[in-house]
């Protein structure tokens, strides 16, 4: 005779951690489950774009960055951009793709966002560590004294992505078009975030414009932290930090205001 199991009682904090953990694992299984070589693709995708762009820019345009091996220069920018872009675009569909699981009373809509955001951060950090190790093994000298700045840059870019992901996630629950809008928004990001070229390569007037993009700050600062010879002048951590706080606060407020609307459907 099978005996039913009584569900153990947990405090709200423990419950939330359990739920986020479960959602995180669900995220990993669905992302990696579809492909045989899940983690492999995770790493290869930025590599391929790096190779393509690297070959184009370095050989055809003949321009390189003297202070940093160009491949690593590009990779770092791409990873920083990905942690932002990934959080933003997965946040948009966070609720939609977990709708069926919201029926369990302990699973709250915010948990689906948090799980996805954490997934993006963890994966980007893993990729960063792997690429760094491989780079150092290949003979690239990284200055590890300022590693904490790189980490802060990652976190700030991530938080901005989270804030925007929340905002767009709430918006897409009201208007379906937001999905497409976000896709349009993310496509030119690579060119206006100083991913494929150093900011100093631009004319001063354009530099001033691009500096309004907080991602330029985090990307350039992280390059400077790993390669001290790489020159930067106007970039600060304060500006992207302020932006991320504002964006995240807006996102959380919007979420709070629409809480009831989001959990029904």
């Amino acid at each position: 005779m099978p005996t039913p199991i009584s569900i153990p009682k947990h405090s709200p904090w423990v419950t939330q951690i359990l739920v986020i953990n479960a959602l995180f694992k669900r995220e990993v299984t669905t992302r990696f489950g579809q492909y045989r070589l899940g983690l492999f693709w995770m790493l290869v995708e930025p590599l391929i774009s790096v190779i393509v762009i690297g070959v184009l820019i370095a050989t055809i345009a003949g321009k390189t960055v003297p202070e940093i091996p160009y491949a690593f220069f590009l990779l770092l920018g791409k990873l920083m951009l990905n942690v932002f872009k990934g959080s933003m675009s997965t946040g948009v569909r966070a609720i939609g793709s977990n709708l069926a699981l919201l029926v369990y009373p302990t699973v709250q809509p915010l948990d689906t966002f948090i799980a996805r955001f954490l997934y993006e951060l963890v994966m980007s950090l893993i990729a960063f560590v792997l690429f760094s190790v491989v780079g150092m093994w290949l003979g690239i000298t990284l200055s590890l004294a300022n590693l904490h700045i790189v980490l802060v840059c990652f976190l700030i870019s991530w938080l901005m992505g989270c804030g925007l992901g929340l905002i767009f996630g709430v918006a897409s629950a009201h208007f379906k078009e937001v999905d497409k809008f976000v896709m349009l928004l993310t496509s030119p990001l690579m060119f206006i975030s100083a991913v494929i070229f150093p900011l100093s390569a631009l004319p001063t007037a354009y530099q001033q414009v691009l500096l309004y993009n907080p991602l330029v700050h985090t990307i350039e600062l992280s390059r400077n932290a790993l390669f001290p010879h790489y020159a930067i002048d106007a970039e600060t951590l304060t500006y992207p930090l302020m932006v991320s706080i504002v964006v995240l606060a807006t996102g959380l407020m919007l979420f709070r205001g629409n809480r009831n609307f989001l959990s029904q459907s």
């Binding site: 153990p8 419950t15 359990l18 739920v19 953990n21 479960a22 669900r26 699981l101 302990t106 699973v107």
Partner: peptide, 15 residues
């Protein structure tokens, strides 16, 4: 997700 994975999910959220 598969049936097993879904069941695992429910077990996980209930600790």
């Amino acid at each position: 997700l598969t049936g097993r994975q879904n069941i695992m999910f429910v077990c996980r959220i209930n600790g």
